[in-house]
């Protein structure tokens, strides 16, 4: 099962490598990973997606919690949550395809953020599913380059992950 684990951790050198090291050392899998400082500059917010059965996820969260730099942790998939990923993509845009790509971008509520005679650079935000649907709609042969941010997430409602 796919899980989104969100972590508040000390914004210190070496903290990220401990999180990543834990995954390789215990044979867990990281699918996406994003990390950046928060409004409190002593803290970083890290979001990762991983897969595993209940037992494995329980071990992952327990071991993450044991890391000294991990201050708080939540498995967002346990409750209602919002997840977003940003994707930048260069798409071949020549001839008749130029209009077709533009229409598809509009349907997915993306934006064309850079243009040349033959290439559109598209920006798209959404869930992982939506981004994948967009790639499929554009057709892989059209795609020149893709860069994705990995999943960021936050819980719905009044619940907050803070100190």
């Amino acid at each position: 099962m796919r899980r989104i684990i969100s972590i508040l951790m000390e914004n210190e050198p070496g903290a990220l490598s401990r999180v990543v090291g834990l995954f390789s050392q215990r044979g867990y899998n990281i699918e996406t990973l994003t990390v950046a400082p928060t409004e409190d500059e002593t803290l970083s917010r890290l979001t990762m997606t991983t897969t595993g059965d209940e037992k494995k996820i329980e071990q992952i969260t327990k071991h993450l919690n044991k890391l000294i730099e991990v201050v708080k942790l939540v498995d967002l998939t346990e409750g209602a949550h919002i997840e977003r990923e940003i994707m930048l993509m260069k798409v071949k845009a020549t001839g008749a395809q130029r209009a077709e790509v533009k229409r598809t971008v509009d349907i997915f509520r993306g934006q064309i953020v850079d243009v040349t005679a033959t290439v559109y650079t598209v920006q798209l935000t959404g869930t992982t599913d939506k981004l994948e649907a967009f790639i499929a709609a554009i057709g892989e042969t059209q795609v020149l380059e893709v860069v994705r941010s990995g999943v960021s997430g936050i819980s719905r409602g009044e619940k907050v992950l803070s100190l």
Binding site: P13, G14, S17, R18, G21, Q25, I68
Partner: peptide, 16 residues
């Protein structure tokens, strides 16, 4: 050494 020992320590510090 901090990197080498990471999986076999409870924690580690590097004096900066």
């Amino acid at each position: 050494m901090v990197g080498l020992s990471r999986p076999i320590v409870k924690h580690s510090f590097m004096v900066r």
